[in-house]
Design a protein around this nucleic acid. Structure first.
Lengths: 194, 194
DNA sequence: AAGTTTATTGACTCGTCAATCAACAAAAAC
DNA sequence: GTTTTTGTTGATTGACGAGTCAATAAACTT
């Protein structure tokens, strides 16, 4: 009963299933069979559409980054003024969606992947550049020449806060992370030292 | 030719070899045979001394944390005054040793492990508590009541800066990371807001 | 209607790997 | 000097997993 035009549907299902399975395992130690089963097809079909397990992982990574990007863009669209834009980036970065088990596991494992898979490293670089550029857009009116260095610090702080929140025991607290980041921002903008 | 008292020697060799292999693979996708071979023994002996692969990994993680702890302690011993102590913690955290491939891979993978292996999570919590306590010791004389929140922000910033340095392409720059962290510190200490 | 393209899977290959075990060797204990 | 403890490995087990392939079937083309 083959219906035509299945490819994008199957691929999307596999990507979703991959992220779920990575979340369940907490690692990339996930078999193609597990993924395919969760996506409701045979493992042979998964190989047919993606060619290899690594391609499946990379597609999943692209999807995670796309989701994050869309969230930021959405928040940005509703933001008013430079402070509003910065706040939008922060709240999007620490939104509940990013603290779901699947997202957490995906991010941590993508950092690991980036060490050895060039394409994964490239994708992560894209994410970082986009974040930096978003921060800079909000910072330039407020920090002038210091915008660049504040953006770099803030970018690192965002990643670090995320890491802390997801690794600590107990439920992560995105709002607290936003507060700390805003506090960093305030103190950096107050005292524009040498 | 069995000499007695081999156990600690063999275990130490296995731990070292494990860290090297994790560095080479960039992941925990490392076989006991690879580790044992690098350590100059049969895989059976590795199992004999550690019981399971997971135990080997945990021993490696303990070793990495021990190394880091020793480095911090050493730097702290030579430090003068609160500012000196804080600077010591930062330089130790961004020392060249922590940017060696093996160390990087170990840290990234231990973050992943911490998601699913309780003992790994515990070890990471120990590291974070120790870091926090070291920062607090330096911060209390300088920041008073704000010490706690500054320590939390600085701790996250350290992790985030580390992550950025190790994931960016090109050689990591520990000194730059220290500078950013010190700048954070300065601006936080200047404006003790409400 | 014959041929082509797309969808789909069960069965299979070939490899790997964690863990176990039997056996051997040397030192220590008795 | 025999028994026990410690060190050591080759061989094996038992399981699993990525990727391939032949075969089947529906749809679309000509």
């Amino acid at each position: 009963m083959p219906k035509l035009g299945m490819e994008p549907i199957r691929k999307a299902a596999l990507v979703k299933a991959t992220i779920v399975e990575i979340g369940r395992a907490g690692s990339l130690d996930v078999t193609v069979s597990q993924i395919a089963k969760r996506a409701g097809m045979s493992s042979a079909l998964a190989h047919h559409y993606f060619g290899s397990k690594e391609e499946i992982f990379l597609a999943a990574m692209r999807h995670i980054l796309t989701l994050y990007g869309a969230e930021v863009r959405g928040a940005l669209a509703a933001a008013q003024g430079p402070e509003g834009r910065l706040r939008a980036v922060l709240t999007a970065s620490f939104s509940p969606g990013n603290f779901r088990r699947e997202a957490v596991s995906a991010w941590l494992n993508f950092w690991v992947l980036a060490q050895s898979v060039p394409e994964a490293r490239r994708l992560l670089a894209v994410y970082q550049r986009r974040l930096r550029s978003n921060l800079l857009a909000g910072l330039r009116p407020l920090a002038g020449a210091r915008a660049e260095s504040v953006a770099d610090g803030l970018g690192a702080l965002i990643d670090g806060l995320y890491l802390r929140e997801v690794l600590k025991s107990g439920a992560p607290d995105g709002a607290a992370a936003v507060t700390v980041a805003l506090d960093y921002l305030t103190s950096q903008l107050k005292g524009p030292r040498a």
